[in-house]
């Protein structure tokens, strides 16, 4: 018993130590967000600001049409994530549980899409979208991200580790592929699907370069674009940049805290087997 307690304690100590390392940069960011312009630049750095500058958050919020950006970010993130999950679940099922001609080749070809740096894709995709007259619309912000092979790959790995026996027992009950996928596999793979959703939500939310390139007006822009308001060619307003970054993170944190309890829901608890 004692031995177990000690190892528990050790586990927590490691986690706390690591947690502090994870938190420090973040705390510094918050700290800077509350400093005055000169305090943010002082050497050696001021740890506790003389006066907490809550106004920075207000100033940062008003530096750009953040409300409009916020609405756009929500729209783009929700649709991108839902759409991507849909294409992902279907494709992952095919790769994990179906047998068909050309499966390996198609899989390899799709895998290669992960090997090209995004910097190479910007211009060709811009041209494609401009041919479809989609520049400066939500379509341009959403459609290219409706499929991610990384997500497909991840879900395929999870689907593959779910035993085939479940399929046979479902077959006996008269279930087809479609039913089996949505009513058995998807619930079983829920932790992975939720994890993928969380990752895609964050990716989409933080995406900066793409929205900037494919939109031409504030009406279509998203939150991270607003961050560039604090950097000019003469310097950066650190305190405002940090305040705005903090504002942008908060919704993501809430979403993550909400989603994470689903990520740990394990197989044995779903009570499907046995």
């Amino acid at each position: 018993m004692d031995k177990q307690k000690i190892s528990r304690l050790l586990e927590y100590l490691i986690l706390i130590f690591g947690g502090i390392l994870m938190l420090i940069p973040f705390l510094w960011m918050l700290d800077t967000a509350l400093k005055s312009g000169s305090e943010a630049m002082t050497i050696p750095p001021v740890i506790i600001p003389k006066k907490l500058q809550w106004m920075n958050f207000v100033l940062a919020w008003h530096a750009a049409p953040f409300l409009r950006y916020f609405i756009n970010s929500v729209i783009v993130t929700v649709i991108t994530t839902c759409g991507q999950l849909l294409t992902t679940i279907l494709a992952a099922y095919a790769f994990a549980k179906l047998e068909f001609y050309g499966k390996k080749i198609v899989f390899m070809i799709c895998l290669t899409t992960m090997m090209v740096p995004g910097e190479m894709l910007i211009i060709p995709n811009f041209i494609t979208l401009s041919k479809f007259h989609m520049i400066n619309t939500y379509y341009a912000l959403i459609i290219p991200w409706l499929a991610s092979f990384f997500a497909v790959f991840t879900l395929r790995q999870t689907f593959m580790s779910i035993p085939d026996e479940i399929y046979y027992s479902a077959k006996i009950d008269g279930a087809g592929d479609w039913y089996f996928l949505w009513h058995m596999l998807v619930p079983l793979a829920k932790p992975t699907i939720i994890a993928l959703a969380a990752l895609e939500i964050i990716n989409s939310w933080n995406s900066f370069m793409w929205p900037l390139i494919v939109t031409n007006s504030d009406k279509m822009r998203t939150l991270p674009v607003g961050l560039s308001n604090f950097t000019t060619d003469a310097g950066t307003q650190f305190q405002l940049l940090m305040a705005a970054s903090t504002i942008i993170i908060i919704p993501m944190l809430l979403v993550y805290i909400f989603l994470q309890k689903y990520i740990i829901a394990g197989v044995s608890r779903s009570g499907l087997k046995g």
């Binding site: 910007i122 211009i123 811009f126 041209i127 401009s130 900037l212 031409n216 007006s217 674009v225």
Partner: peptide, 26 residues
């Protein structure tokens, strides 16, 4: 005249490139 900020200079440069290639220049 309608003004649009394209971010800092290096971002603007990328955008001009893409727009020039697809005949979308302002």
């Amino acid at each position: 005249v309608v003004l649009t900020s394209q971010g800092t200079y290096d971002k603007m440069n990328q955008k001009v490139m893409a727009a020039a290639k697809s005949n979308n220049l302002p």
